[in-house]
Amino acid sequence: MLIQNPPDIASSEITDEHAYLNRRQFVRGVTGTALGVVAAGLVPGTVAEAGDVGQQEIQNVKPGPFRTDEPQNSFEDITSYNNYYEFGLDKRDPSRNAHTLTTSPWTIQVDGHVAKPADYHIEDLLKGIAFEERVYRLRCVEAWSMVVPWVGFPLSTLIKRFGPTSGAKYVEFTTVLRPSEMPGVRRPVLDWPYVEGLRMDEAMHPLTILAVGLYGKTLLNQNGAPVRLVVPWKYGFKSVKSIVRMRFTSEQPRTAWNKATPNEYGFYANVNPTVDHPRWSQRSERRIGRFFRQATLMFNGYDDQVASLYNGMDLRRFY
């Protein structure tokens, strides 16, 4: 049994886990809500208030697979450097403007080729979900990258519950569109609402998660609260934020950036150092917080896990 441990759970993970546990203890101490946290921690999968800028501590988060032991970007960097055009075009706009978004109550419309279409309350969807910490690399199409300790769960868990029918070949995700709370949508920079999509096998892949938090706490709005997609082998714009709709389709969804500039942003958008963006090279990237650029890895370093999804496909054509 021991021999069968997959290579992802390397010896390095042991130290990581220690650091992880220490950090959580530290956070508990600082927030001064240790008692409340412990009490709430008795109930699996519940969320206790930490009283810190509307964020809540997420309980019973288990370390998940596929974690990278690269240094994680700071909470400050992850929450102040965002592309979320609904709140403005500058990287710092979302952190300044996104607080206006109301994330409770929140429902997700599930429709299309699926056995149980409905408007689901997020509380019902998250009931009984086992949260995992997934430390993933995030590679933006703009040639910068971060390492983010997400808290989430495999998207496949939810999809199985919805019961997609044989007609379901793709999943289309839609971001919330609320002009009164989103200053950036006044101008038609993109064809709002923001739509993204995955092929069904990509959506069911164990690397693909829905994230509800990072660094052990619920997501801030600028990171896509209350629930967002994370697909670590694709450029960041595929990982749609603040999801309000999941539609199961038989045809490839028409995605926001692809509609805006089809020759620059494809449907697949797999991280690929050999296929340049028309306006810049994708061979290297700047890890936020580091001075020197580093080489970009095929499928963002997840090629062992996902390369087989694209066997026989010309990745230059299907960029």
């Binding site: 340049d276 028309p278 306006r279 810049w280 090279s281 061979r283 650029r293």
Partner: peptide, 20 residues
Amino acid sequence: VLDWFFDFEAIIDDVVNRRY
């Protein structure tokens, strides 16, 4: 210096191939 740190191969590729 800051962006490419004298990576002339990458810079020449940029100057030749990216119109902006």
